[in-house]
Design a protein around this nucleic acid. Sequence first.
DNA 1: GCAACGCATGCAATCGTAGTGCATTATTTC
DNA 2: GAAATAATGCACTACGATTGCATGCGTTGC
Lengths: 137, 137
Amino acid sequence: MKELEKQLQEKQIKPTAMRLVVLDYLLKQTSAVSLTDMEVSLKKTDRVTLYRTVKTFEEHGLVHRVEDGTGVTKFALCQPDCTANGHHDLHIHFYCTNCKETHCLPRTHIPEIMLPDGYDRQEINLLVKGLCAACKK
Amino acid sequence: MKELEKQLQEKQIKPTAMRLVVLDYLLKQTSAVSLTDMEVSLKKTDRVTLYRTVKTFEEHGLVHRVEDGTGVTKFALCQPDCTANGHHDLHIHFYCTNCKETHCLPRTHIPEIMLPDGYDRQEINLLVKGLCAACKK
DNA sequence: GCAACGCATGCAATCGTAGTGCATTATTTC
DNA sequence: GAAATAATGCACTACGATTGCATGCGTTGC
Ligand SMILES: [Mn+2]
Ligand SMILES: [Mn+2]
Ligand SMILES: [Zn+2]
Ligand SMILES: [Zn+2]
């Protein structure tokens, strides 16, 4: 349990009981989760508290939000090099149209994009939809 | 006006009064629009009718939806080669963090993505956020 | 022309998620 | 331990998406 506390403190997040539960839950996930997912899995937790917990996590560079085109925001743990000053784990997200799961693909790099003249890039979101490895078989 | 009717019929969409109004409006836009945008601009139109109109357009390959991370779905006219069997105008979308407009960049091609083994790509959504040419100055 | 049919439209209502306000509770500081 | 500060829980609001249903309207067969 001390391990979880340390992970929070490294990101300057005070380790409350609720936050430890949420972090523990996030560490066990293999795909990005919505607030509703969390609410269902972690019984007895208030949705708004979860909302503010992941918001805090996001602001401190512990989780990033994933936009997978379903309309509901999902969250996943960041790679280690994210901080409160910004998220640096630029990677692809994959949405499986069969199992509806959304995966981070941190190994898959985003290629350089040539924008038209005058456009100034600040951020890139690359979402690939299709069948995940488990569903393809 | 016959021109508009023809455009609908080419996509197998029956040209009703409402649909002509919506298509005319979409042709005049320089950025993707939300249902609320349409509702405000086209007075006296019912939101649900607009919803179903663009849905019909989308199903027939006349418009495509644009997910720009704002949480609200936007729509824009397709390139000519989209049909009811699928949208084929794979291109980048650009969201300007200053003016909040979302542009299709149909000239900017999406580079090839190498996915991990087992993943099967069906669709790609590439969203770039930053400053548009007008706002950068 | 007219009746019957099917699709399009408009209105009301529901649903689901995001977000805010505020009182209560826990934690830190002195 | 008391005061100050931060986190939590509950109530409620906001808003876009979506459905159900009644009505309107154009097309077709007669
Ligand atoms: Mn990710
Ligand atoms: Mn587009
Ligand atoms: Zn899958
Ligand atoms: Zn702009």
